[in-house]
Amino acid sequence: MTIEAIQNDIIDEFSMFEDWEERYQYMIDLGKTLPLIDEKYKTEDHIIKGCQSKVWVHANLEDDKINFTADSDAIITKGIIAILIRVFSNQNPKAIIDANTDFIDKIGLKEHLSPTRANGLVSMIKQLKLYAIAYQTQLN
């Protein structure tokens, strides 16, 4: 699936929620399903700066596609990462670099995009894209 198609699926799923409670409950549940990062990658090198909760992300390249794994000590943050990983994992670096992230606004999580927001959604997206840029350079 393309990044855009996955984003549209997520927008459809979120459109079924009637209020913030259902939306957040869904994210909390998503957080519980997050593909956990291997413990050995939960190091300072893998921490994303700018988050109030701790977020670790690891990436590896397989068949020209990037796989992300991550973890956080806060469950809502894990839910947000789970969504990002669903969108960006198993995609080629170029697609990740070019992807826009308007869908976050459309699923009612715009408040998390503010640079002052302590969960650092902005920092997370930036980090995923940085991995993509690094791998793209390798591929070139």
């Binding site: 913030w20 409670e21 109030q52 909760s53 000590d73 806060a74 809502i76 302590a118 969960n119």
Partner: peptide, 21 residues
């Protein structure tokens, strides 16, 4: 073991301003 950030986020949705961190 609930992370303070999670509680703060949910409280904010209910109009309550607390500090977390």
């Amino acid at each position: 073991a609930i992370h303070p950030y999670d509680i703060g986020t949910i409280l904010d949705k209910m109009g309550i301003a607390v500090r977390t961190g």
